[in-house]
Amino acid sequence: MSTSTSSTTPLLSLRGINKSFGAVHVLKGVDLDVWPGKVTALVGDNGAGKSTLIKGIAGIYSFDSGSYSFEGQQVEVTNPKQANALGIEVVYQDLALCDNLDVVQNLYLGREATSGVILDETTMERKATETLKGLSVRTLKSVRMKVSSLSGGQRQTVAIARAVLWNSKLVILDEPTAALGVAQTEQVLQLVRRLADAGLAVILISHNMNDVIRVADNVAALYLGQMAAQVPSESLSHGQIVELITAGRSGDLGLKAPDKEVVA
């Protein structure tokens, strides 16, 4: 995957997205571009609308207005199945794994491989092993371990593997390191980076600026439902990101000052 072309044509492109819950206008004319092979960090304060935005992308909510294009095509995504069919997978913050099932069973949950009516365990186990190898996950002793016996980082890994098992093109991670210790956070961040290096588009929601600066190629900052700025991460300092999050602007970047808006 050559980065020169991938950086020019976004995989996912949102323009002028609006979403209200009753009288609450949560997303106000949001634009967002996500490129293959890149990690796009989605940042913003609590209640800025990050989860609402990704739930709209994943088809859990439908947007009120605005354009949603995927691979250059205008698409209509109104339920999770359609998003899955496009190659969009979400790793939710609360992971949604079944503790009583093993790793393979969790990876294939709801989409089991079968021959006739019989579950095709050998195929599932082989592919699961390959996928985990492909993600350079070596910390799992066996793919037949129950998920309840895994550490937080290993669970996160399984949840991510579940998202990439299906030839997905866009993987969305909602605060994947929020509950993890230092070493486990490191593992997961490396994994996120490897996904992008393998050519997938990644949206990473995080409140941790260090993580964002470490792995993101691109930072999109939401401020009270508006997209304050979406800029390459190398052009941003830690402080600038914090300003974008807390005030919606930082120097020339971000939303225009409210007083100027009134004048203009």
């Binding site: 939710y92 609360d94 009583n100 069973q105 949950l109 989409r111």
Partner: peptide
């Protein structure tokens, strides 16, 4: 498999379709 999944974590099962 789905019976075990619903018993283990109904929300996870729902999200798995």
């Amino acid at each position: 498999r789905h019976v075990y999944a619903v018993g283990g974590n109904a929300e996870a099962a729902r999200r798995a379709g």
